[in-house]
Amino acid sequence: MDSIKFNHAYLQDAFSIAGPLEKEGKIRDFDLELDDYYYHEKTFELAEVKMQRVVIEQLLMKNHLIEKDIHYLIGGDLSNQISVSSYAARYYKIPFLGVYSACACFVEAVLLGAKLVDGRSKKRALVVTSSHNLNAEKQFRFPIEYGALKPKTTTFTATGCVGALICQEGKIRIEGATIGKVVDMGIQDATNMGAVMAPAAASVLYQHLQDFKRNVDDYDLILTGDLGSVGSALFREYLKRTYHISMMNHMDAATEIYKTEQDTYAGASGPVALPLVLFNLVLKSHRYQKILIIGTGSLHSPTFVNQKESIPAISHAVSLEVLS
């Protein structure tokens, strides 16, 4: 069994920062919106570190907590050696775990946080994840100002940072989780990450339903991370053909962030895409009670892509229940 059931783990609070393009998109009223990519720092890398720090500090302040009240800090991002999270964590005296599963970071962090907190009274975990479009461009693609022509399957790394507080009480119960397996369907194209990740998302969804003996209709919403328009279509088709599951309650975070005229190809990507949509659209709408979030990560590095290796993908699922 690849799944975990939690007894007492809740999402108590969350804080979101959205970048300059994201705040002009479909979702409005993020907790904090940035006007420029530098965020008053010298480099984009430092700007992303600052985003994580602000999120951590805002969460502490809003909930009247001090560093000592947080027992675990779990952070993840896209930068090499997950340096953004580590450089942000150096400012706090909180035991730190750095996680990497590309754009599935947030779900992995929530899963770990819930496991660490579950059943242990007064324990709190703070999970934080971020991505910065220009840092990702520089690391994974071309220099920032280089106008490379991109195919329509490309996704656009969202800029932003989201943190969440996991503890023993709250209104959103973290009910269960399924840890995904790495899936590689032989796709080599790093500009089509939706196609790389779709089978991994389908596999973890199937595993989750098997382990918990449920079917898709038991959830009001199945929210995938950043499959994008191409990946979402592939995900649904793959589910139908391989596992004979069809669903009407699927939403993909990637396609909910930007407007069509913002010209972001197949939609948003990055670990921050899913939590931005979860906390600022899905939960604020009060329309859904049982939500399954599926983080999707394409685990490639430019080196392996250049060596013509096919790209492995990972997906983790966490089921949430909104208590009324």
């Binding site: 329509k152 032989g186 196609a195 391989t242």
Partner: peptide, 18 residues
């Protein structure tokens, strides 16, 4: 679904460039 079948499916779902 095996890798070859999936890659065919991906081709089918990939939007055409103009």
């Amino acid at each position: 679904m095996n890798q070859d079948e999936y890659q065919k499916l991906v081709k089918q779902f990939t939007p055409k460039e103009r």
